[in-house]
């Protein structure tokens, strides 16, 4: 196993605005091992998606860079597949054709026609979508679409699987099913995964490490939490596991004490001035 399989090194980014450039990220450093499952968590607008887009190559970092297997990457490519929040399937293609488009881009020269077909079917089976292969995205549910989105990425055999709040738009039950599927697949294939999430339970359940981000502007990595829970993990037994709950507490504490939600700030300041004791102000937002 490589120590620094994927390295995010001194990454910062500025977006041009009318007044002055807006600095979204600063000094983001992270080393990821092969086969590791990393979650990025933080409040809305803190720049999680920006980090993911920089790794994907969809955005270019203003300073610093991304090194994958010892090579700098600065443009998008199929070795860093992205699962989008809203599935991003082509609505005019069937489930099969959507995966086919990706497979043909990656394996056109190395696989025969029959192998390509087999590989597409294999990946759809992996996410339990082989029964709806010839349906269009409009004819299947949101959870199923996201399964196909995952199959499309897995079929590309990427070095890193990037997931941008993959289950954010799904209902709780569907989300749980998909989380279980994802855990099973990752256990079997050993993919390296970077996932953005808003959901603390999801982060603890799935990850090897949780990367917690400070609030923007000029957001950075606040804390990194190692999750030493044995795999395979089972959501039911974990719910009562004190270790699991301790991890949850730590993430929640980071999000709601150290990094107060910027959107809720004015209200909190008001209530703090009225009744809350002064000790609460010691851990005021660092990035403010």
């Amino acid at each position: 196993m490589q120590k620094n399989y994927l390295e995010i090194s001194q990454v910062g980014i500025e977006f041009p605005t009318e007044a002055e450039p807006f600095r979204a990220l600063q000094n983001v450093n992270l080393s990821i091992q092969q086969g590791e499952f990393i979650s990025l968590i933080g409040h809305s607008g803190c720049g999680k998606s920006t980090v993911l887009n920089i790794i994907a190559g969809l955005y270019q970092a203003t300073e610093g860079g991304i090194i994958l297997e010892g090579r700098e990457v600065d443009e998008p490519g199929p070795d860093r597949a992205v699962v989008f929040q809203n599935h991003a399937l082509l609505p005019w293609l069937t489930v099969y054709q959507n995966v086919e488009l990706a497979v043909k881009c990656v394996f056109k020269k190395t696989k025969t026609k029959a192998e390509i077909r087999e590989w597409i079917e294999h990946n759809l089976k992996l996410v339990h979508m082989d029964h709806a292969m010839h349906k269009r995205p409009g004819e299947i549910s949101g959870g199923m679409k996201q399964r196909v989105g995952i199959a499309r990425c897995l079929a590309m055999q990427p070095k890193v699987l990037l997931m941008d709040e993959p289950f954010g738009a799904l209902d709780a039950l569907t989300r749980a099913h998909l989380q279980d599927s994802l855990m099973e697949i990752q256990h079997r294939l050993g993919n390296t995964v970077v996932m953005i999430t808003h959901d603390v339970d999801e982060a603890v359940l799935l990850s090897d490490r949780i990367v917690m981000m400070t609030n923007g502007p000029a957001a950075s990595i606040g804390e990194v939490l190692d999750i030493n829970l044995q795999r395979p993990r089972d959501r039911l037994s974990l719910a009562e596991d004190p270790a699991f709950n301790a991890y949850r507490q730590q993430v929640l504490r980071f999000l709601y004490e150290k990094q107060k939600n910027p959107a809720a700030k004015p209200k909190q300041v008001e209530s703090a001035s009225k009744s809350e004791p002064k000790t609460d102000k010691v851990s005021a937002p660092e990035a403010a």
């Binding site: 994907a56 190559g57 969809l58 998008p76 490519g77 199929p78 860093r80 597949a81 992205v82 989008f84 809203n86 991003a88 082509l90 005019w92 293609l93 488009l101 990706a102 881009c105 590309m156």
Partner: peptide, 25 residues
């Protein structure tokens, strides 16, 4: 859709394929 453009960039679709499979539909 921006997402579809991003998909095409991740897949590194060639111009003719991009126009045929994403732009025109």
């Amino acid at each position: 859709d921006r997402d579809l453009i991003d998909v095409s960039r991740v897949l590194r679709l060639s111009w003719p394929v991009y126009i045929k499979t994403i732009v025109i539909p």
